[in-house]
């Protein structure tokens, strides 16, 4: 096997994602003269820090009225002070056009990562989202003696839950009808789980093991009303929906 063949077979590079801390020079006003003097003062304080420092120049905080900016001059100004702009952060069309003329990459504004500025930046690998647990939805009445469990997620019941029926969920329980049976949310210990129902007439309510039975529930002023039940400390809180 010749050297050339091997070179063709072996991969020459790897693409890797990486997070870098980078200085952002955020422009508040479009006034290059003042910027020049202020930047000079700043660099004077720590000349070592500002020699050959890569920066991203952010133009997205510039007021709309001061958008007429000479990007080329701004870049020259930065370099003179030892800053090396890698890219600009911008939203305005004029800025993006100017950047592409200078072959300067454009980054989306902070806090709006989903908004694509540069169509060429679309070619990203799809983000790996959190694992989605589908909610269990029941549309027929849950009768006495029946038990419905939503493992790892929420349970939604769109019909009446009869006395003697039991609803269980690792997450929240929603009942868009009278709840006359038992409802146990967060049974694996999720204290943030809640129970929502259109008409509270339950035999038992429980969140993460803390429970109340009908005898106590009946004394609630919200008995028979649309309520939500949440846990605070060791107490089940019943509030109006």
């Amino acid at each position: 096997m010749s050297q050339a063949d091997r070179l063709e077979l072996d991969s020459m590079f790897q693409l890797k994602g990486s997070m870098l801390a980078i200085t952002v020079l955020e422009l508040e006003h479009n006034d290059l003269k003042s910027l020049d003097t202020q930047l000079a003062a700043k660099v004077g304080q720590a000349p070592q820090f500002f020699s050959n420092t890569p920066v991203v120049v952010a133009l997205d905080k510039l007021p709309e009225t001061e958008s007429d900016l000479d990007l080329d001059q701004l870049m020259t100004l930065c370099r003179r002070h030892g800053l090396h702009p890698l890219a600009i952060r911008a939203t305005q069309r004029a800025h993006i056009a100017a950047a592409s003329k200078l072959d300067l990459p454009v980054l989306p504004p902070s806090g709006a990562r989903t908004r694509q500025i540069d169509p060429s930046a679309r070619e990203q690998s799809p983000p790996v989202g959190p694992v989605h647990r589908p909610t269990r939805i029941i549309t027929t009445p849950v009768r006495g003696g029946q038990q419905v469990y939503a493992p790892g997620g929420d349970l939604i019941v769109m019909a009446a839950v009869s006395p003697g029926a039991e609803l269980l969920a690792d997450g929240n329980i929603h009942v868009y009808a009278p709840l006359r049976g038992r409802a146990l949310a967060g049974i694996k210990g999720d204290t943030g789980a809640r129970i929502f129902c259109q008409q509270l007439a339950a035999e038992l309510l429980s969140i993460a093991g803390q429970y109340k039975v009908a005898e106590d529930l009946r004394r609630e002023p919200l008995w028979g009303e649309a309520t939500q039940i949440s846990l605070s400390g060791q107490m089940l809180n019943i509030t109006r929906l």
Partner: peptide
Amino acid sequence: VRDSDRMLGLLAS
């Protein structure tokens, strides 16, 4: 009524 409710559950399952 409660027994009928239970029966309806069995009919459905």
